[in-house]
Design a protein around this nucleic acid. Sequence first.
DNA 1: CTGTCGGTGGGAAAGAGTGGCAGAAAGCGG
DNA 2: CCGCTTTCTGCCACTCTTTCCCACCGACAG
Lengths: 145, 145
Amino acid sequence: MFYGTFNHAIDAKGRTSLPARFREALAAAGEPKVFLIQAAGMKALRALPLSEWKKLEERVLKVSPFDQRGQKNILRYISSAQEIDLDEHGRVLVPAQLRSYAGLQKDVVWTGMGRDMCLWDKARFEEQQAEEMAPDDAIDFFQGG
Amino acid sequence: MFYGTFNHAIDAKGRTSLPARFREALAAAGEPKVFLIQAAGMKALRALPLSEWKKLEERVLKVSPFDQRGQKNILRYISSAQEIDLDEHGRVLVPAQLRSYAGLQKDVVWTGMGRDMCLWDKARFEEQQAEEMAPDDAIDFFQGG
DNA sequence: CTGTCGGTGGGAAAGAGTGGCAGAAAGCGG
DNA sequence: CCGCTTTCTGCCACTCTTTCCCACCGACAG
């Protein structure tokens, strides 16, 4: 599972190191690559390991060409997707389009999200962190299910 | 599967490069050609690989000549269709009619849509992207069966 | 203090994208 | 019926981006 938060930099070419912890987790699963997509509902990116991407693929291939809502989702999330191989130092190259979507400047933040990871611009991440959470939501999270 | 977004240009003759990634995907399936049709519900073009075109063909051949709605659909989507061979650099020649339908000027955008691809005028694509999505729609997409 | 590991940066080579040119085919006029 | 003009298609060459490779820096541990 992916967890933890890591501050990294992103260079002029759009490269940023995947945290070593995450790399280990990927390597353990024998999947030295990630799939970057726009994150739903927040201006950030999600990095999916191969296994999670496959699940998404299956779902996509079932969507009818005449399903308007499905097509809209595909347009947003699949059209933005990119398969990224890690370079020899474990860096991911974030394509320009995704960089601008997430507003990635120089300082970025990686967060482990359980089955996958998120990549934020540092400023945006801090805004997100500053937001208060309703206590009840947390109760549901920890006791529920 | 086709995914990702690519910014390209279209020249005065209506030629535009099919993104290399898409070409690979086509070549892998042994289908070095695409079928261009008008996209349903959006001012853009869809580029179908042979296998998807075949499915559409089957559906078309089943439509009764007396099925008004079916005939209308055929008129719109089938009569606008064109089979396009790629040139040696992997470019498609977009016929003038389809170019004007999708309003293709100079800058165009290719998007992978899972089983097929879309070709947009850049300005139109950006309008589309700017639209907010209802969070619920995305939930269905990611969790839905 | 030294060695190793994780993160960062820049430079060079390969490949993709674009525009232009030239040859072929088709259409028009003489 | 022949020749000229015009359009279209295939080919070539240039440029810019992307990708790969190598070197440095800093931190933590031994």
